[in-house]
Computed example of a mutant assay.
Amino acid sequence: MREATSQRAQTMDVRDQTELGQLNGTVQAAMKEAATWRGHVVLAVTEQQRRELLAEKHPAFHQAEATARKLAAAAKQRQQAQAPARVEAPAATVTPQQ
Rank of each mutant, 00 (worst) to 15 (best):
T46H: 00
R8I: 10
A92G: 09
R8W: 12
A74P: 00
T93D: 13
G21M: 07
A72T: 00
T67H: 06
Q98H: 07
A83F: 13
L54D: 03
V94P: 00
L54F: 02
R51H: 07
Q77I: 07
E56W: 06
A30V: 09
L53H: 01
Q22V: 15
A68G: 06
L71A: 15
T18A: 11
V14D: 05
E33H: 04
A85K: 11
K70E: 15
L20T: 03
E47Q: 08
Q48G: 00
A64E: 02
K57E: 00
T18G: 11
T26I: 11
E19C: 09
T26K: 09
T67I: 15
G39R: 00
Q7S: 10
H58L: 15
A74E: 08
E19R: 13
D16Q: 12
V87A: 10
A4G: 05
Q98V: 06
V45G: 12
Q82I: 14
T46M: 06
A81M: 10
A91E: 14
V27K: 00
A34W: 08
Q17W: 06
Q17M: 12
V94D: 02
T26P: 07
L54H: 01
R38K: 11
Q49I: 03
L43H: 09
Q28W: 08
A66L: 15
R69C: 13
R2L: 13
E47I: 04
V94Q: 02
Q28V: 14
Q97R: 08
Q98L: 12
S6Q: 11
Q80W: 11
E52R: 02
Q98Y: 06
D16N: 12
Q98R: 04
H58G: 03
R8G: 12
E19H: 11
Q48D: 02
A73W: 06
H62Q: 04
Q49N: 02
A91G: 15
A4P: 04
A29E: 01
R50G: 15
L54Y: 01
A35N: 04
S6E: 13
E56K: 07
T18D: 08
A85H: 02
A83H: 10
Q49E: 02
M31I: 01
V41W: 00
A89T: 02
